[in-house]
Write a protein that binds this DNA or RNA. Sequence first.
DNA 1: CTGTATCCGTGTTGATACTG
DNA 2: CAGTATCAACACGGATACAG
Lengths: 233, 233
Amino acid sequence: MQLKKITKKAEGSARRYYEDACAAAHALDLFGERWALLVMRELMLGPKRFTDLKADLPGISANVLTQRLESLEAAGVLVRRKLPPPASAQVYELTPWGYESEPIFQAMGRWAARSPSHDPTLPFGSVSLMMSMRTMISPALAGALAVDAEFRTGKETFRVRLAGGELTTERGTVEHPDFVLTGEARMIAAAIYGGQPIAALEAAGVLKLEGDRALAERFIRLFPLPPKAVLPG
Amino acid sequence: MQLKKITKKAEGSARRYYEDACAAAHALDLFGERWALLVMRELMLGPKRFTDLKADLPGISANVLTQRLESLEAAGVLVRRKLPPPASAQVYELTPWGYESEPIFQAMGRWAARSPSHDPTLPFGSVSLMMSMRTMISPALAGALAVDAEFRTGKETFRVRLAGGELTTERGTVEHPDFVLTGEARMIAAAIYGGQPIAALEAAGVLKLEGDRALAERFIRLFPLPPKAVLPG
DNA sequence: CTGTATCCGTGTTGATACTG
DNA sequence: CAGTATCAACACGGATACAG
């Protein structure tokens, strides 16, 4: 009787780690596998269910998502929670430390926005939109402007509040918003980052604005993109 | 005469990209493959040759290093340069935009230093040490302290200069250093991050200090580690 | 409906050996 | 020194089947 192939890796894939004390290398041990960081991104605005994660990460397969959720849970980045009845569904939620990874996304976003090969016309999720606004807001341009608005993308609604130069973006609604902007995330991005006037996008039927139009037009100019990097050669 | 196998992927491997306009996702398209970010890290303090990169990244294989250098060059992150004779060797050097990725390492380092699973006893390269000092320096603790020191790890020498709360770390020597610290990077790290007194490490024969001892002891206390994350459960 | 487990084809990764 | 060639292992993504 032959020895059974033990190579089968008893349990939980033996991932490859960098044997490096550098904390940045350790960060890659935690979220360096494909999709892991994007899973974290999708959870930055609050818990989600497996199916929503899968839907919001086009291209990921169920088994890969399962593995990443396991790894990230083992790393202490997220936890799986069972919502109390009647909504007794399972959700995945970042730990407090997991939420503190936001500066990583901001540093990566700021840098990669300058990449010569960055293509902003690709699909754009609503979490990415909200995170990017937090990254790109210019306190200098914002000054003392105060805004309390609602952004509605597809099936999600966000409260976007600017006060004291600080921008907060969270899931939820607003009692008496200054304005409400409705449309796909990529259309809102076209207004904010693409310089498209809101009116033009409305005329095209891809965006809808209700409320204080002047304030909205001013608000969407507060997010200047950094200049593209100039390459040698 | 048979048709030549075109499957060979005409040129430059057909990598998998996230189809995502999110700039952070694009950053992963640029350096999300295994080893890519660590290659960038090794170049953050100046150009290196293929063989040095390979030696400083234990575990990477030559073919993977070649691929990563090609990808990063195509992305505009680094360039290959031929040094002028007589030192006519080939080196790899970050572009100005490549150097601007430092905040990414800092954000990752700050966050991952709090990871419950971070193991600071693993091998520690000298570039990582210099980068981590720039990340972890506490301007509050530094105050108006001025230091001009030399750090010697293995075969490399670095100029470490603190002035006006700013820390610069670069390859090179110092004319009249306040002190010179010699030892493996991990031993210097043991002093700076592990709280080991320099004298103890000298007694163990793993570190050597020349010059202003009081200043050196004070200097190495300027790099407090962030507290470990407390996990639920 | 929500999530997990298993199979499978394919491509990527990495160790070793080898070449200009 | 600076890479290429080869090959084995494994990770990815898709499909499908299964469990609560």
